[in-house]
């Protein structure tokens, strides 16, 4: 298989870093971004400093990216923020930050990547949602609402981009041991896992498996789908 050109957002740590390392190990060319610099050093890795919640920063990023590649085979919208708080106590500033990064960031990247994606034989977009959406978790109202928006965006983009040969799907991981949930108390995580059909903490490899599936050339006919881990539906 020839090297794919894969853009992954939020590659400085956690799942994004694991994704970048995974696709680099497969021989793909990976473009990553985060607010700061990356410690990842690899001949096939190219890092950009981007504020994914700022539309101007994302637009400039894609302008710069085009100087490195004219084609993208996959866009993985991994960058995201979570916030746990009672709905009644969540400041508007937090709401805006979560929606700017999770929703606007995903929207901007999908829109700006289309020109490069449509040149690929098997173009893919993979968005990130969460099991907090189907479980309607208390304390995660704004985070879950932002990811509900991402799910709807995924389904509509799947329809609008189909004529360009671009599929668009989403993965909803169950709790994984990454920075995103480090502030969540252990007993809350345990209670959440207890609501899964398969009661265990997910591993980054579980997410990689789903994204590998979405990215396979044989998955040309898979689009507009939301796949949750852990047997949650």
């Amino acid at each position: 298989m020839t090297a794919r050109h894969i853009l992954i957002t939020g590659t400085s740590r956690g799942l994004g870093l694991a994704l970048a390392e995974h696709y680099l190990s497969l021989g793909d060319k990976v473009y990553g971004c985060s607010r700061g610099q990356s410690d990842l050093r690899h001949e096939n890795y190219c890092h950009f400093e981007v504020d994914i919640g700022c539309d101007e920063s994302v637009a400039s990023f894609f302008f710069a990216l085009r100087k490195h590649t004219k084609v993208l085979d996959a866009l993985v919208n991994n960058a995201g923020v979570a916030s746990m708080n009672a709905f009644a106590l969540t400041p508007a500033k937090t709401f805006k930050k979560i929606f700017d990064i999770n929703v606007q960031g995903t929207y901007m990247c999908c829109q700006k990547a289309l020109g490069m994606l449509k040149k690929s034989e098997h173009a893919r977009i993979v968005n990130f949602t969460t099991v907090a959406v189907p479980l309607q978790l208390e304390g995660e109202s704004i985070y879950a609402a932002s990811k509900s928006a991402v799910e709807t965006l995924t389904k509509v983009v799947a329809k609008e981009f189909a004529s360009f040969g671009v599929t668009c799907n989403a993965i909803g991981p169950s709790p994984i041991d990454t920075a995103l949930i480090k502030a969540v108390p252990q007993h809350k995580i345990a209670a959440l896992i207890d609501r899964q059909a398969i009661k265990k903490m997910a591993q980054p490899a579980d997410v990689l498996n789903v994204i590998d599936f979405y990215l396979k050339p044989e998955s040309d006919f898979i689009s507009g789908q939301i796949l949750y881990l852990g047997g949650i539906s």
Binding site: R66, K70, L114, K118, S163
Partner: peptide, 15 residues
């Protein structure tokens, strides 16, 4: 969608 495709091509040429 044809309009979107045309505009993207123009946008890319301008970029």
């Amino acid at each position: 969608m044809e309009l979107v495709g045309l505009l993207i091509s123009i946008e890319e040429s301008l970029m």
